[in-house]
Design a protein around this nucleic acid. Structure first.
Ligand code: FES
Ligand code: FES
Lengths: 144, 144
DNA sequence: ACAATAAAAGACTTTTTTATCTTTTATTAA
DNA sequence: TTAATAAAAGATAAAAAAGTCTTTTATTGT
């Protein structure tokens, strides 16, 4: 479904958002521990998320990553996914045809287009705020 | 969604099924051409499909691959996917948690479980015969 | 100004996936 | 029984994804 990189990115974003709700800025070590990801690799991913303005980064002592509450209410999960994996998941053919189209449909096109639309809807409508609250409330988890 | 290997496997199986409907046994060269896959790699994939009894193989002159009509009416796409990618797509967490469970749900668990169930239903209910007919009738395609 | 902190950047390694090439085995038909 | 055909098997190779390590840059508090 998502690349490992993208999974880490989504989890990291949600974690940062939930900590930001409590006015806490978090560092890479903290993030890696919260989402069970390799620390150095997580750093690389944060660079991408930062460049794509999914998260804000602050260098130096007391630095780290954060997402303003106003921003996380706007950011859709789709933006995180696009930053890492591009928009393949939103538009490409389930059987790998060069392009997905009703004019040259693969044998799964009709059923698959429906599923892909559901995935798109989920990612395009869910904000980081939506998922961060569940985590902050202890209803959902990012590891195990 | 599926690995490249699995995409090729699904397309190859559908192609072989559609040719078998016309009593035609097909060779690797033919398959690779029909689904736009690398020939040698396709051979490797066919070995797996053959071992998993998705297709029947015949060596020597006039040999090749085929699927009996009775068999293709039983074979679900899920069996092809399992042979190549295992059952990850049917059971694993969308965010990569070690196991997907309602007891330790990731932030996307509820929505994702629904989508995964739709994918499972599609793959577990669609037979090779179902998709082979559309291809044989020129309604669906395996390349471009 | 300086030491400490933490992310950014760059170079590199490992692992997995995708793909190729060569040799062997089975089958067929002349 | 031999030549031709076609898949199976095995050994590599190339490319992409995942992960690590080192150096640099920015920021902060003393
Ligand atoms: S053509 Fe394959 S999903 Fe649309
Ligand atoms: S726990 Fe993530 S999908 Fe179920």
């Amino acid at each position: 479904m998502f690349s490992k990189t993208c999974e880490y990115a989504i989890k990291a974003s949600i974690y940062i958002a939930s900590q930001s709700l409590a006015q806490k800025r978090v560092g890479i070590k903290d993030i890696a521990q919260a989402i069970e990801s390799p620390e150095a690799f997580t750093g690389k991913i944060m660079q991408v998320l930062s460049k794509n303005h999914v998260v804000a980064s602050v260098k130096g002592p007391h630095g780290g990553f954060e997402i303003l509450e106003s921003a996380m209410k706007e950011k859709k999960l789709a933006e995180v996914v696009r930053a890492m994996d591009g928009d393949d998941i939103f538009k490409s053919c389930g059987l790998g045809l060069k392009e997905c189209s009703g004019a040259n449909p693969c044998p799964l096109h009709n059923q698959f287009a429906k599923i892909r639309a559901d995935i798109t809807k989920l990612l395009e409508t869910t904000t980081l705020y939506d998922v961060a609250t569940g985590l902050a409330d202890g209803l959902t988890f990012l590891k195990r």
